[in-house]
């Protein structure tokens, strides 16, 4: 992790659902302008952990946390959640465009944050759609419903919607698991482009995908109390060629029992 600027980090971060400990004292530094992948078997807490970065877990009744999650060195718990989510965008597993036009989908966030001017909105919408590599496919009819697009296009629309509020970080929760291989590939290539401007954290249960797209990989696993732990974190090349922890090796080589 030398020569990298840390964008987000956690310190001794634990999360509880009521009394049940779901995440156990996680320390990690997410480097700026890199793609960091979280891998691990189902139920290891990787999605829950990802959702800690934009405080989406706040929405679940009974969730409490200890330790801190930091964005640019500041504790996100002390930040206004609206401002935090403007800086830390999110793309979900299932493409979830609103049942509105393509334009209104992308303009939703900026409007929320106070941008009213139509021509400025139009510029921003085009820029976002271009960055999400979907402009060429939709530019002729921005009034078409976002729901009428194909799954892969919908997901890229959602990425455009997320980058329209000009975040620093984009969280992606298994963004390609509902897509076919071609659409998946497009999303992966897009991520490679996006990391020039954004810091990306992605949760994936697809190790191959983590290998293909990410610069850093974090492997998570549940302990005997079913709490999610960070087992190993390092450059993806290192994790995939010479993992230090034997459990990491078992998982990435498909010998996981």
């Amino acid at each position: 992790m030398e020569n990298e600027t840390t964008r987000m980090s956690t310190e001794d971060y634990s999360l509880y659902y009521g009394k049940f400990k779901a995440l156990n004292s996680i320390n990690i530094e997410i480097p700026s302008n890199r793609i960091t992948a979280f891998i691990g078997p189902s139920g290891c807490g990787k999605s829950t952990f990802l959702r800690s970065f934009n405080r989406m877990n706040d929405l679940i009744p009974g969730v409490t946390t200890t330790g801190t999650v930091n964005l640019d060195g500041r504790d996100v718990a002390r930040e206004d959640v609206v401002k935090l989510r403007k800086k830390v965008g999110m793309v979900f597993q299932r493409p979830n465009p609103f049942p509105k036009s393509i334009f209104d989908n992308v303009a939703y966030g900026p409007r929320l944050h106070g941008l009213k001017n139509r021509s400025e909105l139009a510029v921003l919408v085009e820029k976002s759609l271009r960055q999400a590599a979907i402009w060429e496919e939709v530019k002729d009819d921005l009034q078409k419903s976002g729901m009428s697009l194909s799954g892969g296009q919908q997901q890229r629309l959602c990425i455009a919607r997320a980058i329209a509020v000009e975040p620093e970080v984009i969280l992606m929760d298994e963004p390609a698991s509902a897509l076919d291989p071609v659409a998946t590939l497009k999303i992966e290539e897009l991520m490679n482009e996006l990391k020039k401007n954004y810091t990306i954290a992605i949760v994936t249960h697809n190790m191959q995908q983590a290998g293909r797209v990410s610069d850093y990989t974090a492997f998570m696993l549940t302990d005997q109390n079913r709490a999610g732990n960070l087992i190993e974190f390092g450059a993806t090349k290192q994790i995939f060629t010479t993992p230090v922890n034997s459990r990491t090796e078992d998982y990435i080589s498909g010998r996981f029992g």
Binding site: M56, V81, V82, R94, N96, P99, Y108, L112, V165
Partner: peptide
Amino acid sequence: GYREGSLALGANRWETTWKV
């Protein structure tokens, strides 16, 4: 997903209910 999508963009719960 609509609600999550809206909340994740920084909308509060009422904005999410009303607009989405």
